[in-house]
């Protein structure tokens, strides 16, 4: 059940984020599915244990499958395609998560100043995490 009533349909921040939360949930399922299927296609059944497979499915970074029986991760498991996949997953997950933090925060903090401050801090955290994460993706 929704934590708060669904916002009125219309062009408002609250409604756009409500829709975004649902769409990004579905998109994360889709991206995870692609990662999982392609992992099996590349031989995960013989080469990757279940823990590493779960990590890879959630976030297809070559570091997530280095301690497995894959002979050479640079063959298929580490390339620009997966970097784009990682950036997409990361963008959706962090935005979804940080907006979730905002929703929870605003359910408990009612006054205007507290909300403005909270929104500012959460916005900065969001940008900060995006920059650090994308740096790590591009450098790995």
């Amino acid at each position: 059940m929704s934590s708060r009533p669904a916002p009125q349909i219309g062009f408002s921040f609250e409604y756009l984020m409500w829709i975004f939360t649902r769409i990004s949930g579905l998109v994360m399922y889709l991206l995870a599915f692609v990662g999982l299927v392609m992992a099996f296609w590349m031989g995960a059944h013989q080469q990757v244990d279940i823990g590493a497979l779960a990590r890879w499915t959630f976030f297809p970074n070559p570091n997530h499958v280095t301690n497995t029986n894959i002979p050479d991760v640079t063959l298929g498991w580490s390339n620009a395609w997966w970097q784009v996949m990682e950036m997409l997953i990361f963008l959706f997950a962090v935005t979804h998560g940080m907006n979730g933090v905002r929703v929870i925060y605003e359910d408990y903090i009612g006054n205007t100043w507290g909300r403005a401050l909270g929104r500012g801090i959460i916005f900065l955290l969001w940008i900060f995490l995006l920059i650090v994460g994308i740096y790590v993706i591009l450098a790995s």
């Binding site: 934590s3 570091n63 997950a93 929870i104 650090v132 994460g133 740096y135 790590v136 790995s140």
Partner: peptide, 24 residues
């Protein structure tokens, strides 16, 4: 759902920052 959402943000956030320090 609330608790797990917050926990994932915490887990992912720390993991990303620590990966940065590990890598660099």
């Amino acid at each position: 759902h609330r608790i797990s959402g917050l926990a994932i943000v915490l887990f992912v956030g720390l993991h990303v920052i620590s990966s940065f320090f590990m890598q660099q």
